[in-house]
Amino acid sequence: MSRTNRSSLIAILVIIGGLVAVAFVNSSSLGNFGITLLSGLFQGMLLFLVASGLSIIFGLMDVLNFAQGAYFMVGAYVAYDAQHAGGLIDLTQAIPDPNLRFPIAVLIAMIVGALLGIILERGLLRPLYARPIYQLVLTFGVALVMAEIIKFLWTTTPYSWTEVFGVRDSFFELFGQRFSTYRLFVVGMGIALIVLIALLLRRSRIGIIIRAGVEDREMVQALGINVQTVFTLVFTLGCAIAALGGAVAAPFLGASTTLGDIFLLQAIAVVVLGGMGSYEGTAIGSIMVGLAVAVAQDAAIGTSFSALPSITPMLLLVLVLLLRPSGLFGNAR
């Protein structure tokens, strides 16, 4: 193991160990400690769904997609709409069973996210690849436009998820405490996705091309590979995964126009602290930030530091950058 990897590993162990220790000390019982950990992992997995796309898109294309949070928000609205009666996509008649309707609602959200991703990449971003500042302004503008379209379609009133389905409404008991099965389901799905994307990057030809493109895009082209097609694929995949995140978050967090902003800011912190463009860094960074936010939420209860959870990702980012200026797995570039 190289010295850089060793110092990254030590930093990760110290930070995660510290967070778990603080969570343990702060908790009044083992049950509470478990709830904080599960809540941290749940938030970490949702963050991963936004940050993974952000990180891979940045690494390969040098595009910091400020609209990634908006795709998360679109996912939440579309899934909500498809699951509940009276919306734009009313599936309640066609699929009366809410347990069956939910995965279809999630799938529709992913398809909408993917289609919007293709439109943004092919239609708007492609002419601006040589102009990074224009791209930044464009994606920021697209996020604002998407938020306005959502307000037009679904009004500004936040939606709370009311249509219960099996896994959303079930609980299990551990250490005398009730745990949400749905949170566990999202954590499991997030872990499965981390493994799946890692396998895609490590084992498939497209994964090798993406990893090579992160290092040297020009050389990939000189080997006869059409990088533009790979850009479209990666961008679409990143947007679809963000929409998936929003869709699975909606049963817990509902759908609101501020949802995207919260996750985007945290995801940017994850991508930078993990090391720009590093997939491993993004996965570990997401878990770290999720845990840190959960610990901060727990610590803020009953105190006047209600802003603590929202500033925690940035505090963690500062701490990591002080230890490793290029992020946990980043190369100085």
């Binding site: 090798i208 990893r211 090579a212 050389m219 000189a222 590979i225």
Partner: peptide, 20 residues
């Protein structure tokens, strides 16, 4: 094309560098 400074993909194995 074999460019100046080689442009080897440093994170990819030798096999992956050839496979790509």
């Amino acid at each position: 094309f074999v460019p100046e400074h080689r442009a080897i993909f440093r994170e990819l194995t030798v096999h992956e560098n050839l496979q790509i």
